[in-house]
Simulated assay, not measured.
Amino acid sequence: MADTTSGAAGGGAAGGAGAHRSGFACLVGRPNAGKSTLTNALVGQKVAITSSRPQTTRHTVRGIVSRPDAQLVLVDTPGLHRPRTLLGQRLNDLVHETLAEVDVVAFCVPADQRIGPGDRFIAEALAAAPRSAKVALVTKTDTVPKQRVAEQLLAVSRLGEELLGGFADVVPASAVTGEQVDVVADVLLSHLPEGPRLYPDGELTDEPEQVMIAELVREAALEGVRDELPHSLAVVVDEQVEREDGVLQLYVLLYVERESQKGIVIGRGGARLKDVGTRARRQVEALLGTRVHLDLRVKVAKDWQRDPKQLQRLGF
Rank of each mutant, 00 (worst) to 15 (best):
K46Y: 05
L38E: 06
G246K: 11
E228V: 06
Q249C: 02
K262D: 02
I64E: 00
V256N: 05
R243I: 06
D186R: 15
V61S: 09
S157I: 01
P145H: 06
T4A: 13
L250Y: 07
G44R: 08
E179W: 04
V292F: 02
A175W: 02
L296Q: 09
A13M: 12
T77S: 07
S36C: 03
L222I: 00
E162Q: 11
L154S: 11
E259P: 12
T77N: 01
T50S: 11
V73G: 00
V28A: 01
E207V: 08
F121V: 01
L188W: 09
H59I: 00
G18Y: 00
D169N: 08
V236I: 15
S132H: 07
A286I: 05
N40K: 08
L254H: 12
K299N: 13
R218H: 03
V184P: 04
L159V: 10
V75G: 00
K299W: 14
V170S: 02
E97V: 01
Q305W: 03
V135T: 13
V176N: 05
Q147W: 04
L254C: 11
R21A: 06
T77K: 03
Q147H: 15
R82W: 09
A280Y: 11
T50E: 03
L248G: 12
R21Q: 08
E207P: 02
V247S: 04
S157C: 03
A8Q: 09
V61N: 01
T290H: 13
G7Q: 04
P200S: 06
E124F: 01
Q310I: 07
E179G: 12
A128I: 01
D3M: 07
R120W: 05
R67E: 07
K309N: 14
H231A: 05
A220C: 01
S232M: 09
Q180D: 11
T143D: 10
L91G: 01
L91S: 00
K309H: 07
A301P: 14
Q312W: 10
Q152M: 15
A220Y: 01
L314N: 09
T5G: 13
I64S: 02
Q240T: 07
K262E: 11
E101G: 02
A106S: 10
G12V: 03
E209Y: 08
A14H: 09
R291D: 14
R313D: 14
D112E: 02
D303V: 12
R281T: 08
V104I: 07
R114Q: 09
G34E: 00
E161A: 10
A13Y: 12
P193Y: 09
A2Q: 10
V276G: 12
F121M: 13
E162H: 13
Y255H: 14
Y251D: 05
L296P: 09
A14G: 15
V75E: 02
A100W: 04
D3K: 13
T4E: 10
D3A: 13
V171W: 00
G202I: 06
P31N: 06
G166V: 06
S174G: 03
P78F: 02
K274I: 00
